[in-house]
């Protein structure tokens, strides 16, 4: 019991739990003699990865590249749109319904069309990753820009500050916590977008690995790819959290 209160030990607990699950998985699959075409044991998954580690690494990197490109464009476009929407109520009125429409339409439904339009290469994947990631950034940033401190904006007016100054130096920083909340949703979502696009048509990437492994019933390969995509999502999320901790040192949410 004393050990459970030890801080270091407590930090290790989730990993210990993970290893326990792996061991049980291994033991149960072997004991119950589950077919390797249904559920391979962890040892077989590791084996599958070690048989050609560079293939999995390159596939993961390729998907990461697609997702990151799409997310970056989504970030730029999302912030730009938010700036316009927050400044012009009429524009908000006109385009926000369509932004929602883009968001609620399943990307899987749009993907084939994008393949027809943009070919089988990088472009449709980046476009889908972009489409999936700009929306949370836009709506969050709009709310942020609109909730800038009234008194601070009045102060800018009393000081006869330029619109540029009050936008960049007051409104944007006030919107930053909101923007970064959007990023935390958008960055992992971009990975999903890229893989969805790869499912429709691709010659490389994690989605391609999963599709071809499925065709050849190499279930262990599928598990490796799933772990790769999970790892990517976690990495994107962690980077967003890191950006938040760097950029928002002043914010209440960062006080420990």
């Amino acid at each position: 019991m004393k050990l459970l209160k030890n801080k270091r030990f407590r930090k290790l607990l989730p990993f210990a739990f993970f290893i326990l699950v792996l061991i049980m998985w291994e033991v149960l699959v072997r004991a119950l003699d589950v077919s390797k075409f249904i559920l391979p044991p962890p040892s077989k998954i590791v084996e599958a990865f070690l048989s050609d580690p560079s293939r999995f690494a390159i596939s993961t990197a390729w998907t990461a590249y697609e997702a990151f490109l799409g997310f970056s464009i989504g970030l730029l476009v999302g912030v730009f749109l938010a700036a316009l929407i927050s400044q012009f109520r009429t524009l908000d009125h006109i385009i926000t319904p369509y932004l929602v429409l883009i968001q609620v339409t399943p990307m899987v439904a749009i993907a084939p069309l994008l393949v027809i339009w943009f070919g089988f290469g990088l472009t449709p994947k980046v476009v889908i990753a972009f489409l999936i990631s700009f929306f949370p950034i836009t709506i969050n940033t709009v709310i942020g820009l609109r909730s800038a401190d009234r008194d601070a904006l009045d102060l800018m007016r009393v000081l006869a500050a330029t619109g540029r100054f009050s936008f960049l130096r007051v409104k944007m920083p006030f919107a930053l916590p909101y923007l970064l909340s959007g990023v935390k949703i958008a960055a992992p979502a971009a990975v999903i977008g890229a893989i969805v696009a790869e499912f429709v048509s691709s010659t490389q990437g994690l989605g391609y690995v999963i599709l071809s492994a499925k065709a050849q019933l190499r279930i262990a390969d599928i598990f490796v790819a799933i772990m790769g995509s999970a790892l990517l999502g976690v990495t994107m999320f962690s980077l967003s959290v890191f950006a938040e901790s760097r950029l928002l040192r002043w914010h209440e949410s960062q006080i420990r």
């Binding site: 401190d149 008194d151 601070a152 009045d154 102060l155 800018m156 009393v158 000081l159 006869a160 500050a161 330029t162 100054f165 130096r169 007051v170 920083p173 040192r249 002043w250 914010h251």
Partner: peptide, 29 residues
């Protein structure tokens, strides 16, 4: 012509700026 100074009920400081950076705002503007 910036002949008016205004002090609100709330301090209306920019929380990401230090004390001196806040005081410096009018000079920047």
């Amino acid at each position: 012509s910036r002949q008016i100074g205004f002090m609100f009920q709330q301090p209306a400081l920019l929380p990401w700026r230090t004390v001196i950076e806040n005081v410096n705002i009018p000079l920047e503007v």
